[in-house]
Amino acid sequence: MDPSKIPALRRGIRRQYDSARHAHVLLGPERVIVLDDIAVEITNLLDGTRTLADISSTLAEKFAADIAQVQPDVTAFIEELIEKGLATA
C-alpha cells in the first residue's frame, strides 16, 4: 500500500465503545471486530485527512518507537481493514 494514500473507514462503518465487552469495536454489515489497544490508536487516526505515512509517524512519535518498525504493522492492519470491506484508501 502506497504510504501517500489516505485511508478512512468505509461508508456505513462505525466505531464505538462496547460497555458489555469493555472494548472498542468496529461495526459494519455482518461484521463485529473487537479492537485491541493498538487498533484503537490506529483507528483514532483514520480521519480522512492523514496519509498512511502521517499515521505511522504520529504513532512512532507518540510511543517513542522507530518508524521503520511501526509502519509495516500499521500498513498490515489497514490493508486487513480494506480487505474486510471496513476501510478504503
Binding site: 468505509r10 461508508r11 456505513g12 462503518i13 459494519g28 454489515p29
Partner: peptide
C-alpha cells in the same frame, strides 16, 4: 442508499 451515505448490500 449509497448517496445517503449508508452501506449497501
Amino acid at each position: 442508499v449509497t448517496q445517503l451515505g449508508m452501506s449497501l448490500t
